[in-house]
Simulated assay, not measured.
Amino acid sequence: MTQHIIYTDAYADLFTFEREGGIKEYHAILHVTDCKKAFSQQLDALMNAYQQLMGNQLKGAVSVFKRYFLSDAANQADEVAAADSSDCAKSIVEQAPLDGTKIALWVYLMTDVETKLLPSELYEVRHGQYRHLWNASAHNMAANSEYQMRLLFNEYVMQLVQEGCTLEANCLRTWLFVNDIDLNYGGVVRARNQVFFTQGLTNNTHFIASTGIGGRMQDPNVLTMMDNYAVAGIQKEQITYLYAPTHLNRTSDYGVSFERGTRVDYGDRRHVLISGTASINNKGMVVHQKDVVKQTLRMWENVEELLKEADCTFDDVAHMIVYLRDGSDYQVVKEMYAERFPNKPIIIVRASVCRPDWLIEMECMAVKAINNDKFPKL
């Protein structure tokens, strides 16, 4: 179920998933409506909308993960951090909302869970036998993007070890934000490939669903930033990797290491994590160069095939994040999304994709009701 909720100088698009006797899940994307106001006023409008949402439609839910999208992190990130004291993993990234505003928010929420910050500095969301482990805005100041990425993954591996987990068995999703991606993405790829090999993540085993995209923190010396999601207590049999071979190739064919998508089955529901997906064919080639409309259509087709492989459709999608290389493409892309996905929680931001020829990329998460007695409920 989706809702469009209007507030003073802001609005929220809300996706709700619920099953009798199970926890409720929500995905909300909050937008500011008055782009002429100063940042502090836009932040106030967003936070007021969030508080009203929590007090009404989301009463009893807790935030488990947030991502703030900013137009100018150097001048805005500290103010956001000071304004939000909620106890969850918070990602703050410069990826300007392309509606002309300075800030937007994606928030993922659940009911009937216990949350806390662990000594490992991962955020735990506990329900039943599962511990969902979130990490956000991880960064360091190593000399270049390769060293920074290697250190980020090595530190994350050690955090997972503290929780009795491994990168190979428990990590389901990563987001890699790269400052000046055209220059620094190569180092990120080399570091990830090297660390994954040491952790048993290869073309013969599996990789991890991921988005590698342009984005930055407030400090220009931070060349890479990482968000992560893992689940402790999950079994190997619950996880299926998605390939859509008629439309997409293996990422390892062109030297990178992530999965196109991941299906995770619990006893009462299915989560589908779709990686950053662009206009690509099953030979690894960019399709429809320099045409954002045709690239968007091919990108949707690719995502649809991945969802179909997980026995899902776009109707099951809880939220979408759309990345545009060229902000001048916003209006045409916005109209395409509004026509096909009215009221779906969507954010369109300015962020370069890892290949200059890709004008657009999207990621999403789907949630679907299932009944599988082999696995515990979420």
Rank of each mutant, 00 (worst) to 15 (best):
Y254C: 13
I213H: 00
V256G: 01
P220H: 12
L152Y: 10
E363P: 09
Y123E: 12
A209Y: 10
T240N: 07
V195Q: 03
T8E: 14
K290W: 03
E121A: 11
L109C: 15
D112C: 04
T174F: 11
P119V: 04
I208G: 10
V349K: 04
W106M: 14
A82W: 03
A278Y: 00
M336D: 02
G214M: 00
L297T: 01
Q194Y: 08
M336H: 07
H31S: 04
S91Q: 15
L117A: 13
A10L: 07
H271F: 15
R192Q: 15
M110N: 13
I360C: 05
F197M: 11
Y254D: 15
N371M: 08
G233A: 08
N154G: 09
Y50P: 04
D9E: 10
R150H: 12
D44R: 02
Y254P: 05
V222I: 14
I239A: 01
I239T: 04
N228R: 12
V62P: 00
N179D: 13
L133Y: 09
M285C: 02
F314V: 00
E114K: 14
Y243H: 13
S85V: 09
Y11L: 11
T115H: 06
E168P: 01
D253F: 08
Q218G: 09
V287T: 00
R67Y: 08
S85D: 11
V292G: 03
I274T: 06
T101G: 05
L98I: 03
Y50I: 03
V113A: 11
T16C: 06
K66T: 09
R263S: 14
L105K: 08
I213Q: 01
N144G: 13
D13R: 03
A74V: 12
I23T: 14
D291C: 05
V178G: 13
G212F: 06
L307R: 00
G212L: 10
I348P: 04
V93H: 07
V349S: 08
T115N: 09
A49L: 05
V264N: 09
T2Q: 06
A38R: 02
F258N: 12
F341Y: 03
W134M: 12
S63A: 14
Q41L: 10
L183H: 12
M226K: 04
L324R: 01
E339C: 01
F153S: 05
H132L: 15
G215H: 05
Y130I: 14
A12F: 08
M362P: 02
T2H: 02
T251N: 15
Q95Y: 03
Q52C: 12
T251F: 13
K374S: 15
A142H: 13
Y266A: 10
D44Q: 03
D44C: 01
K368M: 02
G215I: 05
